[in-house]
Design a protein around this nucleic acid. Structure first.
Length: 493
RNA sequence: GCACCGAUGGCGAAGUGGCUAACGCGCUGGUCUGCAAAACCAGUAUUCAUGGGUUCAAAUCCCAUUCGGUGCUCCA
């Protein structure tokens, strides 16, 4: 069984990631809080987790992956209240949007998707286990808290030292309900007008941290192989999960922690006040392709802070076009039989370099480079007549390997953008869409094919003026025509 | 304030002690083409924020400085 080397936040170094039961890698990834549309920062994390699971499976290891949907929390309650709808109705819309966005970005569905509101009994049971050990305690208002003083290892993930804070010598007057300032909520007592559950703990709703502990354990057991999330979740969220789960089970909760670093947008932290905050849908409406967004967000390795810019989005678009053009060239066939040994060797080297790069802490940048090296070598061979059919078979095999992780070769972009436009129309936000986008997509494939055929006919009669007029006209609408030896092809820019 | 991370060509970005500093995009010239596009070829950082140090050897290790980022109340 193959393995990959992956940085482990817990040990602070690169360690081998492998399933402890030798059967399947059991992993948990913190999912979305469905109170709004997902932004590109959210998706950078989900995309890199997607890369991880694709790489693991490519190495022959099955994955058991759980993702939670947080469908009750402060922001949801606030927003649903403002909208005047029940929280279930409010979250349903954004959850559906979230899954549409995952599909647009070719992010695979985890094996288990679990709603917080469907696992309340599991959370209550976990809190009761902690209460039985006097680690959870009930405050005057009916909320339950975790007693951090009872978990000496608190801070081991984020490498924080809380000595002096948990002495108990000082008690914050404002926090009279809690025994210590750092203690965090496990269960929040009901407030007027809020959705609540009647349980043996009292009437209320779960805290955020307990959700993940309960759901990870429910589906994967007490000790799991890997837990992933954005870097900001390391503290306090993941630290609290460890405290809860390990206090309850008495065992190490997670062997391997993976944290994806934040991205910057145009050199700055993405925030609404900076005016550089983008959801996936914002970018689709601006005319950027879903495939380019995926490719860009995964091209920078997950442990590096990446700078998201519109220039680099265009770069990704062009890079994908190069890959797709090359892929089509290989699929077209018609190459002479046989095998060019030198190229075969290069193909094997590219495959090796690609595999090693990903196994080395998911170095997507190097993996990508290995593929482009192969593309250039094969294009050169094709141009000089050295490319043979057996080479093509090998090359397509490497491309499939590459696409098994990067998932950008299939062109679904027009359909995804159309869906985004339909959504914008339904939401009354069509004015946010780039005008040329609407024009380009209003042209059906059949319309374009007809015009392309007319141009080809004009060319045959050497009516180049007419042919060029059609080409320019289509170009104005964002459609690019390419004449090649084996016929005419077109694509949307 | 405390802690941590980063700074590589026009842009994005690999590389963390030793061949001519990957790869992509862009740009310039050439080949091909009716013209384009695609593709290929050639060129595009004597140099890796700045200063100092260690070493036979440093983008890579150490120190300082400057700048950028993150965490320190549930923001991926």
């Amino acid at each position: 069984m193959a393995t990959i080397e992956l940085f482990n936040t817990l040990g602070g170094k690169i360690e081998t990631l492998s399933p402890v039961d030798q059967k399947a890698l059991r992993m948990y990834c913190c999912g979305p809080t469905v109170y709004d549309y997902g932004h590109i920062g959210n998706f950078r994390t989900f995309l890199h987790v997607d890369v991880l699971r694709r790489v693991i499976r490519q190495q022959g290891i099955p994955v058991q992956h759980v993702m939670n949907i947080t469908d009750v929390d402060d922001k949801i309650i606030r927003n649903a209240g403002a909208a005047g709808v029940p929280i279930a109705q409010y979250t349903e819309k954004f959850e559906r949007a979230f899954f549409e966005d995952l599909d647009a970005l070719a992010i695979e569905r985890p094996e288990y998707i679990s709603h917080a509101t469907a696992c309340i009994p599991d959370m209550v049971s976990l809190i009761e286990q902690l209460a039985a050990k006097d680690i959870a305690y009930k405050a005057e208002d009916g909320s339950w808290y975790f007693r951090i003083a009872r978990f000496p290892e608190y801070g081991k993930l984020s490498k924080k030292d809380f000595d002096g804070i948990e002495d108990g010598a000082r008690v914050d007057i404002d926090e009279y309900e809690k025994d210590a300032a750092r203690d965090f909520a496990l269960w929040k007592a009901v407030k007027p007008g809020e959705q609540s559950w009647d349980t043996t703990l009292g009437t209320g709703r779960p805290g955020w941290h307990i959700e993940c502990s309960a759901m990870a354990t429910k589906f994967l057991g007490d000790d799991i192989d890997l837990h992933a999330g954005g870097e900001d979740l390391m503290f306090p969220h993941h630290e609290n999960e460890i405290a809860q789960s390990e206090s309850a089970s008495g065992k190490p909760f997670v062997r391997h922690w993976m944290h994806v670093r934040f991205l910057l947008v145009e050199g700055k932290k993405m925030s609404k006040s900076e005016g550089n905050f983008y959801t996936l849908r914002d970018l689709l409406l601006k005319g950027y392709r879903a495939s380019a967004i995926r490719f860009l967000l995964i091209s920078v390795p997950y442990r590096h802070q990446m700078n998201f810019t519109f220039d680099s989005l265009i770069e990704s678009t062009n890079a994908i076009d190069r890959l797709r053009t090359f892929h089509q060239r290989m699929l077209k066939g018609g190459f002479p039989h046989g095998c060019d040994q030198a190229l075969s060797l290069l193909t094997g080297e590219a495959r090796m370099a690609y595999t090693i790069a990903l196994a080395n802490d998911l170095n997507t940048a190097e993996a990508r480079a290995a593929i482009f090296d192969l593309v250039r070598a094969a294009n050169t061979a094709a141009d000089t007549g050295m490319l043979r059919s057996e080479n093509v078979t090998e090359i397509i095999g490497v491309l499939q390997l590459f696409d098994g992780v990067f998932a950008v070769l299939e062109d679904r972009d027009a359909a995804i953008t159309r869906a985004a436009l339909a959504w914008a129309e339904a939401e009354g936000r069509l004015d946010e869409a780039a005008p040329e986008l609407v024009a380009t997509l209003s042209f059906s494939d059949a319309d374009i094919d007809a015009l392309v055929a007319e141009r080809t006919q004009a060319k045959k009669t050497r009516n180049f003026a007419r042919a060029d007029a059609i080409r320019n006209d289509l170009l104005q609408k964002g459609i690019l025509i390419e004449d090649s030896k084996d016929g005419v092809r077109w694509k949307r820019k």
